[in-house]
Design a protein around this nucleic acid. Structure first.
Lengths: 117, 117
DNA sequence: TACTAATACATAATTTTCTTAGGTATTTAT
DNA sequence: ATAAATACCTAAGAAAATTATGTATTAGTA
């Protein structure tokens, strides 16, 4: 089995929202920096979410009513926790299901499994 | 199991080159229109490659030395067949392996399989 | 104690990639 | 005849990421 040190950025495109929504669904609430670290840790560094990509995404999900925030102060440093709203939970589930289906299709298309598996 | 009529364009981003390289690896040579039809057919319409995305990609792969072309005339209509060059075959294999690895990582990350599966 | 790394947020310019919308022309089916 | 399918192509714009910054606090270390 081939092991990558880190995926080409092209490959990761389009999966960021799915990853973020899924993590929030599993963990209740998380803050931005925590998300970057968690993804890095869970993927052994193969996926590293940059802050330049993450924060605009979080803001747009919030503006879209799928996330809500809550500030917490650790000393003088602020942490902005994000969690799913009710519609956000629906979106999260839909996206995860869509991605699972997509992976099956890609597996078949790329002939990575016995056909019809 | 959830079934999508067609995936959100966001999800497909970044997979086009992998799909094209894989099809050419499996089928020897194909022309542009044939690729769009084959993908549509193999994925039951869930992935539909637009020509506006495909042709520029084919041209850039060719310019990059990974594909070479051969014209064929069907009556007066031209067909431009693409096939992998030697370096193109290496790239194709690498991309497919990378994608397979990526899917495993995403499965784990999205908790779609028992962990460590 | 000074310095560096890590934590934690954020935005802006640029690049990449795709969508949308157009264009040309031939062949097949109605 | 006309529409749909086949077959190529490009260009303007949108979307999403990268790269490069910026600010500020806290923890670790030399």
């Amino acid at each position: 089995m081939y092991i990558c040190p880190m995926y080409s950025s092209e490959l990761i495109k389009g999966t960021l929202k799915t990853i973020v929504l899924n993590l929030l669904k599993e963990n209740g609430k998380m803050y931005g920096y925590e998300i970057t670290q968690k993804v890095k840790e869970l993927t052994d560094g193969k996926i590293q979410i940059t802050e330049g990509a993450l924060y605009p995404t979080l803001h747009s999900l919030e503006q879209n009513g799928e996330l809500e925030t809550e500030k917490e102060y650790i000393g003088k440093r602020v942490r902005k926790y994000y969690k799913l709203t009710k519609p956000g939970r629906v979106t999260a589930t839909a996206r995860i299901n869509e991605f699972a289906d997509f992976m099956n299709t890609m597996k078949f298309l790329l002939d990575l499994e016995p056909k019809m598996g």
